[in-house]
Nucleic acid binder design. Structure first.
Length: 148
DNA sequence: GCCAACGTTGGC
DNA sequence: GCCAACGTTGGC
């Protein structure tokens, strides 16, 4: 799950422990959190659009998908007139902090492992802020995680 | 700041 | 339904 650390970082999550992952405004990503995610699933937190992009920690999904109310408020940056309480187009999930890496697993490092080359987040042109991970990719990164 | 890649929008 | 134009993402 990607986020720009300037808006919300792993340190922020460590501080608040649980956070609604709001602001999803892409249908593929919405369908993914709605249909494929379950409470108890784990996710890597990835910092994007920053000096050293990469995996910085781990978290757990701790809610089902529910309406993203920030889409209803014209004051909000992610306001979207298509969505309202009667017809909530956009959804979010709550995530819970698990751990933070002392040293991030950088994008550069991820790319250096041929075992990971098919990971969605590493594909050219991938723009989805949340991407599913194959189990073998998750497990492989777990090994990198253990030594970071 | 640049630019490739992609999703969305809207005219037709 | 097509597709050009536009906005956004995100690495570099």
């Amino acid at each position: 799950m990607k986020n720009e650390p300037e808006s919300f970082s792993i340190d922020d999550l460590e501080r608040v422990k649980i956070e609604p992952w709001d602001g999803i405004r892409n249908y593929q990503v919405r369908n993914f959190i709605r249909d494929k995610m379950s409470v108890g699933d784990k996710a890597y937190f990835y910092h994007s659009s920053c000096k050293i992009p990469g995996i910085v920690g781990m978290m757990e999904i701790c809610s089902d998908a529910y309406p993203d109310h920030t889409a209803w408020n014209p004051e909000e940056h992610y306001y979207d007139s298509k969505s309202d309480p009667e017809n909530p187009v956009w959804l979010m999930v709550d995530v819970k902090f698990i751990s933070k890496l002392d040293e991030p697993i950088t994008l550069q490092e991820l790319r250096s492992h041929p075992e990971l080359e098919n990971m969605r987040i590493l594909q050219r042109g991938n723009r989805l802020s949340i991407t599913p991970l194959d189990k073998h990719h998750w497990d492989y990164i777990q090994k990198l995680y253990a030594v970071s």
